[in-house]
């Protein structure tokens, strides 16, 4: 077994054995879906021909996937460093690359299960999501979203020494980003400048990609731009993650 496979297996087992976290990882986005579903049930967004659910379903799903990837890797990395596990790995010939990527498969798997559950619930008549023919195009979006937010999570993990720090930093990043990127409220309802700011945020592109895949909003160009932008974010975040990586809290 390669170092990468071994670390992935260790991450996977650690994740599935933490049943409370598994449960809430999947329950959290559903909770938002139900809340917003109840608030906006059957209402249309002015002049767009789309229902709220068409905005909220891909938006909340995007946020859920990004949130899980970001928190998951940041927590693991922080606790591996605090428990001296990174030090142990540092003393083996395993590469940094295998450490940074060890959670990728786990996070991707989490995001797929999250999506299936989430879309399944959104399709219920009460919420009334109608799946577009493009729906399979959501898979490349998931891969790119997980990559970008995993890399961002590594940066957060690199800078955090305690679980509290991870929670504080990650929440400060993801919560405002979710609002500005239109995950919870349709961007079409917001002032123009917010729409402009959202173009600088990676979650905006996850939303765009998901919206195109799940309900055909936007066109193929928007979709491809979204994938490309997420690729650029992955590279930039990945480079920063590599530069700021620390094996130990001590110098």
């Amino acid at each position: 077994m390669s170092a990468y496979a071994a670390l992935t297996r260790a991450s996977f087992k650690a994740s599935v054995r933490d049943t409370a976290t598994v449960f809430f990882t999947f329950a959290f986005p559903l909770l938002f879906l139900i809340t917003f579903g109840l608030i906006f049930q059957g209402r249309e967004v002015d002049d767009t021909g789309y229902q709220y659910i068409d905005y909220i379903a891909p938006g909340v799903l995007s946020w859920g996937v990004a949130n899980a990837a970001l928190f998951g890797v940041a927590f693991s990395l922080m606790s591996w460093r605090n428990d001296d596990l990174l030090r142990l790995i540092r003393l083996t010939p395993a590469s940094i690359w295998s450490v940074l990527n060890s959670r990728a498969v786990v996070s991707l798997l989490v995001s797929v299960v999250q999506s299936v559950l989430f879309i399944g619930v959104a399709l219920l008549p009460f919420f009334g999501l109608k799946l577009h023919a493009n729906w399979l195009l959501s898979l490349p979006v998931l891969v790119m979203a997980v990559s970008a937010f995993l890399a961002l999570g590594v940066i957060v993990g690199n800078f955090s020494n305690t679980p509290e720090a991870v929670a504080a930093i990650a929440n400060c990043i993801i919560v405002p980003m979710a609002f500005i990127s239109g995950s919870f409220f349709p961007l079409d309802m917001m002032p123009g400048w917010i729409e402009a700011v959202s173009r600088a945020l990676p979650l905006r592109y996850v939303n765009d990609g998901m919206s195109f895949a799940l309900n055909g909003r936007g066109d193929l160009t928007d979709y491809l731009v979204a994938l490309g932008a997420l690729g650029v974010y992955t590279l930039v975040f990945g480079a920063i993650a590599l530069r700021t990586f620390r094996w130990s809290n001590k110098s």
């Binding site: 260790a10 087992k13 650690a14 606790s79 428990d83 001296d84 596990l85 142990l88 003393l91």
Partner: peptide, 12 residues
């Protein structure tokens, strides 16, 4: 290397 603070993989 055996370190003072025993480092073990979480939940294994």
């Amino acid at each position: 290397v055996q370190t003072q603070k025993s480092a073990f993989f979480t939940r294994l």
